[in-house]
Design a protein around this nucleic acid. Structure first.
Lengths: 362, 362
DNA sequence: GCACCAAATGTAAGCGCTTACAAAATATCA
DNA sequence: TGATATTTTGTAAGCGCTTACATTTGGTGC
């Protein structure tokens, strides 16, 4: 019969017994303690062989490795994190978990970090200040060693404050004056400029514009680049040809439908991003227009599938993958002291000319 | 002068002092201990107010909440996990972090879990047995409370064994005989059947097929559904019209190019998924064919962007979101004891007829 | 053989929480 | 009012690791 304290006092040690003795159902995973016991060494030694670093004789190491194998031991990242004050994970905040743009970003960050056995903990901000802040809180709670943030709604000062706290951050896709060193961003103004200039060069003068939501920084930047190009060619920006979208296919579709409904004449349209371009093209075609014969269109982002659209979409390349990789490297360097060179903070967009734009002929 | 042990002995208590006294750089986040001290209550009480459950008087609760606020306290999920043997996280393994299909899946799982404050820890398996197993190990290491797995390469028996261990699993998109209760899958055979039958109904007889990789289970199932439909219409499956793809746009492009190069005649093609359909359409158009006039095409998956392709793609609906949600609910029910009903294990595909298929006329 | 040193191993305290149990405070009722 | 039941609070022992420091072991050179 078990001693009196046996019932109430469920320490891991007892559970160990229960599990082995009776197939008890309580969840219990092998610990470093089990390993040390089986191998006949101390906890510290087991810890040493796990972390590869310290001096352990081959004989001992072998004993430990065998014991681990035999027990199917899996170290607990949780316990390790608590003891070492390092979680070996970095928080990644993006707007949505789906969507080609964020997908590439996430994928690139993850790939870069994983090379160094760092894990990305991913959260979605849904382009909403409250949810963004909440997700950041969450990541902090998870004790990430650093944060890579693609945030659209939270104000600059919030990020500036955040940067002062214990967890290093890098802000992606946004340039904030007081913490430029923590920012990796794109020259959106130039992108907007390139798109418009391309159309102007092809002879277009009546150019419609389906922008992203106007409250977003990148929307504003692209728009002002757009205007700069127009001005350069002496074309006045016509607000009737401007329509606010949502950076999604639906928005592009609706935008084009609206633009067409107004009986404006325009020979080309630039869209705030490729997804909207896809939607806009569908709408234009529904209205009986052919692209690019009746309407030229240029997008922004150069998503993987831009070249599978019909006609293949001319667009502005957004080097997301490179930027995401850069963010990851920043973290690797500054947080994990991996000495990689970090060079660029601001990336430049490029025009990718494909088949959706035609020279203007009247 | 500080006592002798002060230098070498960096306990959190000392760091607390160092940080406050000298702005020392060591990372230190406020702990439950700081809160309890400021509020003038015990650790247990603070823990109680955090977990909302137990009996705490309003007065005390308020003191604690104030202290937390004042200190900017953020509980450590790591410490909590260690102490409670629950990480409040479930591991999600998918093939790729990018791509519209997995994006939807991930997004749906995350949304469902988040309602209950459970976090998804996401990992990629890259359709490669070794990496899949490695990722599973990783998630186990992270002490996830459950695993939701979309795995393609790891053998059935591996999963059967895994299911016996301490961490509950649910397998998505794959049906495994010995653990059907843990599986949420699609009737792929029926999907393949529906796609082919649709074409046959429209009068097509020479039907090409660009499948996914043949080693994948779903590829096989769809293919056999395809053959079943052909047989029903007395059409012989022509291996010369079959081409193995990779479920990606590139594969569809290459597949179609190859098919066309062989100078076969066929009036329609069914593609293993929408991404390949997009690639195939591009290739066909490059070869001067119009769709659907010269070639009808049907896809599989019904990705969000399928209806933005040109022409709008006819395809088979794969209810990923619903399935992902179901997997999440399974976990919520069985692991977190949230009493939601779980009904379906096998989902049925449906034909979505749009514009990429035309009645056959010779 | 012995002193000495480096390498190998062990000891034990601590990471920030949870939780069983004990103790104290308050409410309830005769 | 005091005895008892109930609610609120505190105490302290873990959770599975890391790591500073102490101790042991096994070579060296003389």
């Amino acid at each position: 019969m078990a001693p009196l304290w046996f019932d109430g006092c469920e320490t891991a040690a007892h559970i160990r017994k229960l599990v082995t003795e009776s197939g008890n159902n309580r969840r219990y995973m092998t610990t470093i303690y089990d390993v040390s016991e089986l191998a006949g060494v101390s906890l510290a030694t087991v810890s040493r062989v796990m972390n590869k670093n310290a001096n352990v004789s081959d004989k001992t190491r072998q004993k430990v490795v065998n014991a681990m194998e035999q027990l199917g031991y899996r170290p607990s990242a949780i316990a390790k994190g608590l003891a070492s004050n390092r979680s070996s994970s970095v928080g990644v905040l993006i707007s949505e978990l789906h969507g080609p743009f964020y997908g590439s970003m996430m994928s690139a960050v993850e790939a870069e970090l994983r090379k160094f056995d760092i894990h990305a903990i991913i959260a979605a901000g849904h382009s909403n200040a409250e949810k963004e802040a909440e997700s950041i809180e969450f990541l902090l709670t998870r004790r990430c060693d650093a944060l890579i943030l693609w945030v659209e709604s939270v104000p600059d000062r919030y990020l500036v404050e955040l940067a002062k706290r214990d967890t290093p951050i890098v802000v992606l896709g946004r340039k904030i004056a007081k913490i430029t060193k923590n920012c990796v961003s794109l020259n959106n103004e130039e992108g907007g400029y390139l798109a418009a200039r391309y159309l102007l060069e092809q002879g277009h003068r009546k150019i419609a514009y389906i922008s992203g939501p106007l409250w977003k920084g990148d929307t504003q930047d692209r728009l002002s680049g757009h205007k700069r190009a127009l001005a350069e060619y002496g074309v006045k920006f016509n607000t009737k040809l401007h329509c606010e979208g949502d950076y999604r296919e639906e928005g592009g579709f609706r935008g084009m439908t609206e633009l067409l409904g107004l009986r404006n004449t325009f020979s080309a349209v630039v869209c705030g991003n490729d997804e909207m371009a896809a939607g806009a093209m569908t709408s234009a075609r529904d209205a009986g227009l052919s692209i690019p014969e009746d309407l030229s269109v240029v997008g922004f982002d150069n998503l993987v599938y831009a070249r599978y659209l019909y006609p293949k979409l001319s667009t502005i390349n957004y080097p997301v993958r490179e930027m995401a990789q850069m963010a990851a490297r920043w973290v690797l360097k500054h947080v994990y002291k991996n000495q990689r060179l970090v060079a660029t903070n601001i990336f430049e967009p490029e025009l990718v000319a494909r088949d959706s734009v035609q020279q203007f002929r009247r």
